[in-house]
Simulated scan of single mutants.
Amino acid sequence: MAWVVLVISGLLETAWAAALHASQGFTRLWPTVAFGAALTLSMAGLAYALRTIPLGTGYAVWVSIGVVGTALVGMFFLGEGFSPLKGLCLVLIVAGVVGLKVLH
Score class of each variant (00 low, 15 high):
V4S: 13
V5R: 12
V7C: 10
I8C: 13
S9A: 15
S9F: 12
T14R: 13
A18H: 13
L20V: 04
A22Y: 10
S23V: 06
Q24K: 14
F26G: 00
F26W: 11
T27D: 08
T27N: 06
T27S: 15
W30D: 08
P31M: 09
P31G: 08
V33C: 09
A37P: 11
L39M: 15
L39I: 15
S42T: 12
S42Q: 14
M43A: 12
A44C: 12
R51V: 01
T52W: 04
T52V: 04
T52Y: 00
I53L: 06
P54I: 00
P54M: 01
G56C: 01
G58D: 02
A60P: 00
A60W: 02
V61G: 06
W62H: 08
S64Q: 03
V67W: 09
V68T: 03
T70S: 11
A71W: 04
A71I: 04
V73D: 06
G74I: 07
M75N: 03
F77I: 05
L78G: 01
P84V: 10
L85W: 14
L85G: 01
K86S: 04
K86V: 02
G87M: 12
G87R: 07
L88Y: 08
C89R: 03
L90V: 09
V91K: 07
V91N: 06
I93P: 06
V97M: 03
V98K: 00
L100M: 10
L100N: 01
V102Y: 09
V102A: 05
L103E: 00
L103S: 01
